[in-house]
Every structure is written in structure tokens, then in C-alpha cells.
Design a binder for these strands. Structure first.
Length: 580
RNA sequence: GCGCCUGUAGCUCAGACGGAUAGAGCAACUGCCUUCUAAGCAGUGGGUCAGGGGUUCGAUUCCCUUCAGGCGCGCCA
């Protein structure tokens, strides 16, 4: 849709260019008018050119229009309106042709190559393995996962990574906390560390350990058995995290250990590399990275007076490692509490020669958790928080993900767990899923008619060769492979049908925008719009009629909607159920 | 004090490098199930786009400023 308009205008400008004294073709804006009476697509190029051409926008629009009409474009009508908008309306044949193409090829512009197989890394969540994931991590997970799916759909080669901070004091503190609970559970009343993790999960881990090894380490000092508790607690914590994410529907390609960066000498190596570039210096007995050279507001310590590395040192190594692994683009998704960290990491990457546009940080703002409208205070240390696990169990993964993905990443989010539950029947996620389920149901009915050999079913049939007769999924595959053959799409004449076709043809535009902006939530809104159009249509018109031509055409339309819904939901990481 | 994010309908939020009469869901109210799933549809009401200034033919969008909320400003991780 966008392409056709852009082409028409580009050609027009190309032939007018010389007379206008233009050197190059300007950016051509194409948008969908708010009011559909105005047209199917519109451009504001004429208004944009007023300054350079020193002519009134309407005059420019007229000149463009007279050129465009010379071409044999797919337009039924083009008119100039308002302050200089050029509004386009497509011929119906164009809509039918493209619907047909969509049915046979899918959305060609999608995989066709925005990404061009470029490698892109998306790092997200990267929670410390010192406690269960909470709801904020859930938001990051939903966004990171959806963004990765989006980029994959756009033809990028995406690697999803979770960075595990398993080297620092925090895991030691985790071990110490578990150690203390272990001793206490066995009757040894040791002092619980001041900054220890107080959540119930610590005691649970201690219980597990007792089940495993009994009182083997009773009355041992932490110095004697600390390593055991640290590594054991950390491993259990990490496997919990992994399990929760799996149940949430999020998986990773790689779990990068911080500790491993140390063990492989990558931290030292990265610092040496910086040293060679003269970006390190000594001051006050410490070693500093001169990040101010790259726009940071102060230099940062990498090796402390006591000779220990800072957390930042391993992060330098980590990001250098990302570069060394040869990604074309690096995306970090962080919680809002880390945004102050952006300039220094950007500095690191600049120091190693990465150009700015190849590194992108997406800041995910905080989630304010409510229960019945009242804020729930969250503190990991104090052990008061709503875990992702609770959200999954109480609200459900699909609902939670959908809620997270109906907001931009950089706006704060209020998540009322009770509202999310209570509204479950009215929840937008079900609205979209319901449209998919309804269509699936129509195909089930169509298949029954065909089996019964009704006359009116001659125009459509199931191509069973496409179906995989695979155990319990037979129905599903049969539905997916339901081929509508030899149908005449021009039978789609209702306004609702035309509206749906147009919406479907807008998909590439919306998709490109989402990819370009790294904003998966645009998919969510599109799906709601499409579902709305479909529900409305469904209520007004019957798909399965006595007229085989109309039925065939409508089934085709349903198939196209179904494919779009399925594709969109897949990107969001939300299931597309056949029955509800 | 400085920096980043946010402020749009009663509530939760969209608004696509600045464009036409500002949108959705929920909540409220009125209708619609003998026919493919009523988790649905049709309709009604609801706005100082936080306030003020500026740039522009045109600003919810860009700039400045004030106010409000959130988050950061360690030789912590």
C-alpha cells in the first residue's frame, strides 16, 4: 500500500525535479488518514516542499497530481484536500490482487529483508540470581521476547541473551543468607547477615539443601563451607529463574556468565585493550577509564584501590565480548533504575570503535504493582514482592504479556493484579484470541459441510496433503491446511470486507514502523484493530452461505485475517487458541 | 542541586521523522443470541492533550520554562 503511493510520487517528482530545481528526491511521507472518507492513503510531501520550492502547497500538490495521473497507477481516485494533502484511493482490483498475493505468499515484505540477515543481539532481563524474578522482570521479559520475535520476523538473525551476574558479592551474600537459614533450621542460632536476603525462598533453599545433604555442614563456619552454599544456592536460584521464564514462554539462546568472563581472562583482556588505546589511567591508587572522552560526565573506576575489579570492569569485558562476537547491532534492555549507566557503556563501545547507531538501549520503566488499587511495596532484601511466578499463576502468561505489550517501554505502568484477573473475560488479549478462535470455528464448520458433501462446498476444499497427520494435532493441521481454491475474491463487496482487506494491506507499513522503532507494542494495537473489524463483520454477515462463490471468497478473507492474527500473536509471544 | 523518563476521557493507555474533525479498552447508559463461539455486535455520553511561552503555513508531537510523579547521580552490585 505504502509502496504503491511512494512509487507514484517518486516518479512524479523525478519528472518534475529539473523544472523545480531539486537535486534529490525528498523523504516521502505516507500515512493512513484518520478519517477513512478522506482516502486509503495520504501524503504530505507537497506541504513539506513549500519552503524549498517557495510555492504554496496546493500548487505543488496540483503539479504532482497532474504527473501522477499520467502514470497507470492502482488508484481509483486521487485528490488534493485540506492544506495540501494528496489523498489516494485504491481501485478494488488492486485490493483483490494484493489479498490474493497475501494468501499465496504471506506478507512478502516481512521476511523479505528489512533485516538482510544481519546479526543482532538482544540482551534482556539479566536479573541477579539472588532471588526470584518479579513482575518488573516480567515486563522486560515480555518486551525483550517480543522485540526478538519482531526482528526475527523482519529477517534479522537474532540472538537472545541473559547475562548472569554470578561473580560478585551478591551471590556470596545469597550463599551466606542460605547458610544462615540452614544453620538456624538445624538449631544452630547463628546471626543472620544484616544485608542478607530475607525472603522465604531463602529458607526454602535451605530446606532443600537439608533434604540433600542433611546436617553435613552443621556448626561449620561459612569460611569452611561457603563455596558449597554459594554455588548450590546460586544454581537453584538460576534454575528457578529459568523455569519461571519457560512457563512465561520466554527462552534464551545464551546465558552468559560473568564469572566465566573472569575465568577466561576476558576482563583483564578488555582492560589491557583499553590500556593500549590509552583510555586508562591511574589516580588515587585506582585505575580509571576516561569515559569523559566519549561524553560521560565523569571518569569511571575499573580497578579499586584494593586491587579488586569493579562491577563496571566486567561489564566492559562483557560488551567488548559482544563486539568480538561480531553482531551488527547490539540491543540492551534495562530497567529504569539502570539508565544512568547508559553513557558509560556507550563510552566503552565507542572506545572500541562501534558507531553509535549500532548500540541501542531500551529502558523499560518501572511497574507499579497494585492489588485492588492499592500499591504493593516491593523490596527484594526484605523479601516483599510479587514474583513473576505469582503473576503467571494468578493472571496467566498470555494476559500478563499482552498487558505489558500494550504500553510503550518508556512509560510507567500500573499493573493491578486483581483487575487483570477480574477483567479476564473482558481482557483485550481474549478479544484478539477470540477472533482467531471464531475463525477457526468457521473452518471447522466449513470442513463439516464439505465432508457431508453439500453442493455449496464445491468452491472450497481441504488440501490434506499439507496437513501433518500428527497425533492430537490433526484438527489443527487440517485447519491450517484448509485451502480455499478457485475462489473469486471480487465477490467481497461489503464495506466491512473492503475495510478488512485494507487493514490487512496496512500490515507491512505498521510492521516496518514497529521494526524501525523497536516497538513491538504497535503489533498489539494493530491486532486489536483487526480483531475489531473482524468481530463487527462476523456479527453482520455470515461466512458460510448458500452461495458457493460468496462463501469461498469469505473463507479466503477469513484465512487472511487468521494468518495475520496468528503472525501477530506469535510475535507477541501470545498463544492463538483454536477454541475458547 | 544535576540527569533521564512520564503527564492525553472517570480509570488504564495508544496517537506511526510535525499534518486534516484527538482514539481504544475498562467503567456508565440503551438495544441485539431459533442460523458459522454473546470472551461478541450496534449505539449514547465523556477532553483546557498538566500550565505558560516559542519555532512553523500547521504543534498532543519539536525547543524553553513552571508544576506534578517515577528513576538515577558510589573505588555497591
Amino acid at each position: 500500500m505504502k509502496k504503491a503511493v511512494t512509487e507514484a510520487i517518486t516518479n512524479a517528482i523525478a519528472s518534475l525535479k529539473e523544472g523545480w530545481g531539486l537535486e534529490s528526491i525528498p523523504y516521502i511521507d505516507v500515512e493512513i488518514p484518520r478519517n477513512e472518507d478522506l482516502g486509503d492513503a495520504a501524503s504530505t510531501v507537497a506541504m513539506g516542499l513549500t519552503k524549498t520550492l517557495k510555492k504554496p502547497p496546493k500548487k505543488i500538490a496540483e503539479e504532482l497530481l497532474s504527473e501522477i495521473v499520467k502514470q497507470s497507477g492502482p488508484f481509483e481516485n486521487i485528490e488534493i484536500a485540506g492544506a495540501g494533502f494528496i489523498n489516494f484511493r485504491f481501485k478494488k482490483e488492486y485490493l483483490y490482487e494484493n489479498l490474493q498475493r497475501l494468501l499465496s505468499e504471506g506478507h512478502p515484505s516481512l521476511s523479505a529483508g528489512l533485516g538482510q540477515n544481519k546479526r543482532i543481539q538482544v540482551e534482556f532481563i539479566s536479573a541477579n540470581p539472588t532471588g526470584p524474578l518479579h513482575i518488573g522482570h516480567g515486563r522486560g521479559a515480555a518486551i525483550g521476547n517480543a522485540l526478538s520475535n519482531l526482528l526475527t520476523a523482519a529477517g534479522f538473525e537474532v540472538e537472545k541473551e541473559f547475562y548472569v551476574n554470578d561473580a560478585g558479592l551478591q551471590v556470596k551474600l545469597l550463599g551466606l543468607s542460605v547458610y544462615s537459614r540452614y544453620q538456624q533450621a538445624l538449631g544452630n542460632d547463628v546471626h543472620f547477615p544484616e544485608n542478607g536476603y530475607k525472603g522465604d525462598y531463602i529458607a526454602s533453599i535451605a530446606e532443600e539443601i537439608i533434604k540433600d545433604i542433611g546436617n553435613k555442614y552443621l556448626n561449620n563456619t561459612f569460611e569452611q563451607c561457603g563455596d558449597f552454599f554459594i554455588s548450590h544456592a546460586y544454581k537453584m536460584m538460576l534454575s528457578d529463574i529459568e523455569r519461571d521464564l519457560k512457563d512465561f514462554g520466554v527462552t534464551f539462546d545464551k546465558w552468559q556468565s560473568e564469572k566465566e568472563l573472569y575465568e577466561k581472562g576476558k576482563v583483564q583482556g578488555a582492560l589491557t585493550a583499553l590500556q593500549h588505546k590509552n583510555f586508562l589511567y591511574e589516580k588515587d591508587g585506582a585505575k580509571w577509564f576516561s569515559s569523559t572522552n566519549f561524553g560521560d560526565d565523569k571518569d569511571r573506576v575499573v580497578v579499586k584501590q584494593d586491587g579488586e575489579y569493579t562491577y563496571f570492569a566486567s561489564d566492559i569485558a562483557y560488551h567488548k565480548d559482544k563486539l568480538d562476537r561480531g553482531f551488527d547491532t547490539i540491543i540492551d534492555i534495562w530497567g529504569a533504575d539502570h539508565h544512568g549507566y547508559i553513557p558509560r557503556i556507550r563510552s566503552v563501545l565507542s572506545a572500541f570503535g562501534l558507531s553509535k547507531e549500532k548500540f541501542r538501549v531500551i529502558i523499560v520503566q518501572m511497574v507499579t504493582l497494585l492489588r485492588h488499587g492499592k500499591p504493593v511495596q516491593m523490596s527484594k532484601r526484605a523479601g516483599e514482592f510479587i514474583t513473576l511466578r505469582e503473576v503467571i499463576d494468578e493472571v496467566g502468561s498470555d494476559t500478563a504479556k499482552f498487558i505489558f505489550l500494550t504500553r510503550r517501554a518508556d512509560s510507567q505502568l500500573e499493573f493491578d493484579i486483581e483487575v487483570a484477573k477480574e477483567q479476564s473475560a473482558e481482557n483485550p488479549v481474549f478479544y484478539v484470541q477470540y477472533a482467531f478462535a471464531r475463525i477457526s470455528s468457521i473452518f471447522r464448520q466449513a470442513e463439516e459441510r464439505r465432508v457431508r458433501g453439500q453442493k455449496d462446498s464445491s468452491q472450497y476444499s481441504v488440501d490434506s496433503s499439507q496437513g501433518t497427520a500428527n497425533s492430537s494435532h490433526i484438527t489443527y493441521h487440517a485447519l491450517r491446511s484448509f485451502r480455499v481454491q478457485g475462489t473469486d475474491l471480487t465477490a467481497l463487496k461489503e464495506v466491512e470486507e473492503i475495510a478488512i482487506i485494507k487493514k490487512l494491506l496496512q500490515y507491512p507499513m505498521m510492521f516496518e514502523g514497529a521494526v524501525f522503532a523497536f516497538e513491538p507494542h504497535r503489533i498489539t494495537y494493530y491486532l486489536q484493530d483487526l480483531a475489531r473489524l473482524f468481530h463487527s463483520y462476523y456479527n453482520k454477515h455470515r461466512v458460510l452461505t448458500d452461495d458457493s462463490v460468496i462463501t469461498g471468497a469469505r473463507l479466503s478473507l477469513c484465512r487472511a485475517v487468521q494468518l495475520a492474527l496468528e503472525e501477530g500473536l506469535k510475535i507477541l509471544g501470545v498463544s492463538a487458541p483454536e477454541k475458547m
